[in-house]
Computed example of a mutant assay.
Amino acid sequence: MSKYARESIIKGNQLLMPPGDAICYSGYREGQSPQTGDFPSYNEIHEDLLLLAPHWSYLRLYDCSQHALTVLKVIVENNLDFKVMLGVDLGAEMSNPNCPWGADYPDHVLQQNTQANEREIQRLVTLCNTYEDIVFAASIGNEASVEWNDHMVSVDRLVHYAKHVKQNIAQPVTFCENYVPWRDKLKPLVEVVDFISIHTYPVWEYHTIDSALDYTQLNYQSVEEVHPNMPIVITEAGWTTTSNGRGIEPWNASVQLQSEYCKQLAQWSKQENIMTFMFEAFDEPWKGSADAAEPEKHWGFFFVDRTPKPVMNGVFGG
């Protein structure tokens, strides 16, 4: 049985894990994208993990693609000291009229997505069992229930996926989502998962650095108040360093603001013993629009060329 069996690492409302910093990791470089199936090579991922290893113990992966499989292989074959939260990339199983950029799909596409999701969930089970001493938790999806998303999955289906995964792996099971749905919509899912995983982005909600940490704390506490007996992890929090004004004012995105927010966030998380996955290890050029200043592309602690941003000086040991 996995050394991360849920019975041994969850006690009451606490997730009992060895101390260590946590970060989200997506290793796609220029010309690579999960959408096109152009994946980072073994050597590129090895290079990335060697950059991350001095600073972080926990990695969060978003799917069970070739990218994730290569990450797991690199960790095993190079004896790297990482523990991994493994996820799945769910496609839309229902249309969502609330999505600002459009999420209206024909029935045959939704059916295809549902079948693909079921295969992805099974890959999650397989990888959790194959790499049981590395994968410490499994997430059944990412931002698939929040009102604005373009890959909506019903709560009933999320409950179904969570139950299936729990029946077939030893590790604890979660779902990664914006803090808002956890307060009400996802209550049926709370009854099934082992811990709650929330996302909090003050800068997306028009906060400046002066109120950012307070707002993050309010986000966390608003979920904690509704579910006081559940462990809560922050699986995404960060600050973009560039913006073209799409959703974030350009003056509110910089390497200095990223460094300050993440410093405050890291200090508070350690003080309160909250596992917090910083978003994101590396800039992601494949995301968002073609505009180079698209804010989605610039959340990394390292630039896409793998040079460090100022956040790495002082906050995470240089």
Rank of each mutant, 00 (worst) to 15 (best):
Q112M: 12
P172K: 00
P100S: 09
W148N: 09
Y161I: 01
K163N: 15
Q122A: 13
K163A: 12
D150N: 15
V146G: 11
G102T: 10
Y161C: 02
H164C: 02
P106K: 07
C128F: 04
T130K: 15
H108C: 08
N142K: 01
N113C: 05
L110H: 02
H164R: 12
V203R: 08
V109F: 07
E147G: 02
S197E: 13
T114H: 13
T130R: 15
L90I: 05
I121F: 11
P106E: 10
Y201F: 15
P106M: 08
D150M: 12
A138N: 08
R183Y: 04
V125T: 11
D104S: 14
V155E: 10
A144Y: 00
Y161W: 13
G141T: 03
Q115W: 01
D150R: 15
E177W: 05
F175C: 04
E205A: 09
S95H: 07
F195P: 01
A162W: 00
N98Y: 13
P172I: 00
S95E: 12
N96T: 03
Y161F: 15
P188C: 04
P97M: 05
L110I: 00
Y105E: 03
A137G: 13
R123F: 09
D194F: 09
T174A: 11
H151N: 14
N129R: 12
N178H: 13
F175G: 00
C176D: 15
L124Q: 06
S139H: 04
R119G: 01
G91Y: 09
D194G: 09
D107P: 00
K187I: 08
H199V: 01
A144W: 00
V203W: 11
N129Y: 10
P100H: 07
I121S: 02
D184V: 07
P181Y: 11
I134K: 01
K166F: 06
D150C: 15
A103G: 11
G102F: 12
G91R: 13
N96P: 03
W148K: 10
I169D: 00
P188A: 04
C99G: 04
Q112W: 02
N168K: 14
P172S: 05
C176W: 00
E93A: 14
N149V: 15
I134W: 03
P97H: 03
A92I: 10
Y105S: 00
